[in-house]
Computed example of a mutant assay.
Amino acid sequence: MTALRLDETDHHLLALLQKDSSRTLAELGEVISLSPSAVQRRVDRYRKAGLLDRQVAVLDPVKADALLAVCLVTLAKESNAIHAAFRRRLLAAPEVQQLYSVSGDTDYVVVLASTGMAHHREVADRLLKDAPNIQRYTTMFVLDPVRAGLSLPTKR
C-alpha cells in the first residue's frame, strides 16, 4: 500500500464515505467544498493506495433476521502452520463475518452470522467443533446488536 498524506478534507471525505458511500460526487463535494471531479480524484487516489478497500451494502442484522454469535477460540498448539490452516478454513466460510487474532487467553475472536440456530449449529460444528487443533471455544449469542459499526478513524 502506498503511504498517503491525508489533509483535513481527506479525513472529512473519508468519514462521509464510511457513513454512506452511495452519495453522489456532487453531494459529497458540496459538503466538503470541492468540485465533483476533485472528489473523484481523491477517491481514485484512496483506491490506488489501497486505503479504500471496497464498497459494500450493509444489511441491518435485525431486519435480515440474522443470528449473530461471537466465538472465542483457543488453539491447542502454537505454530504458524496451525494458525494458517485455521485462518484459511475460517476465511473460506461465508458465515464468518469477522475474524480477529487477539492477545490474552483466547487466540481468536470469530463473529459468525447464520440464518438461525440450526444453521449456526451446522456452521459451528463444521468450523470449530470438528476442526483439528482447537482446544476450546465459547459461543456468546448476540441478543441485541446495539452498535455494529464499520467506520475506522483516519486521524487522532
Rank of each mutant, 00 (worst) to 15 (best):
V73T: 03
L16C: 02
Y137V: 05
V43W: 00
I82Y: 11
P61S: 05
L72I: 04
R45Q: 02
R88Q: 12
A3D: 08
A131Q: 01
T24Q: 00
E95R: 05
T9D: 02
A131P: 02
M140S: 15
V56N: 02
P36F: 09
A85W: 03
H83C: 10
D7R: 02
Q55K: 14
H120I: 06
V96D: 06
H12N: 06
R156A: 15
R87E: 15
D20S: 10
P94Y: 07
M117F: 11
V102A: 12
D125H: 11
D105Y: 14
K129L: 14
E8A: 10
A3S: 13
D144G: 08
T74G: 06
A76E: 15
K129N: 13
R121K: 11
M1E: 09
H119D: 06
Q97W: 11
I32A: 00
V142G: 10
S21N: 07
I134S: 07
A118D: 14
R5F: 14
A113I: 12
E30Y: 04
L75I: 07
A92G: 05
Q98A: 14
D130Y: 03
R23V: 08
D60G: 11
T154A: 03
A76L: 14
V58L: 02
V142F: 10
V96M: 02
K129Q: 13
L143Q: 14
T2S: 14
R47A: 10
E30A: 09
H83E: 13
Q55L: 12
L90W: 03
A38G: 05
V43D: 00
A148Y: 09
V109R: 10
R45F: 00
L112F: 04
V96N: 05
V58C: 01
A57R: 15
A85M: 03
A85G: 01
S151E: 14
M1C: 10
A93H: 07
L51Q: 07
D125K: 09
I32Q: 00
D125V: 07
S21W: 08
R5P: 06
H12K: 10
T154N: 03
L6G: 03
F86W: 05
H83A: 13
L14F: 01
V70I: 13
Y137I: 05
A76Y: 09
T115Y: 07
P132Q: 10
V142D: 06
R136K: 15
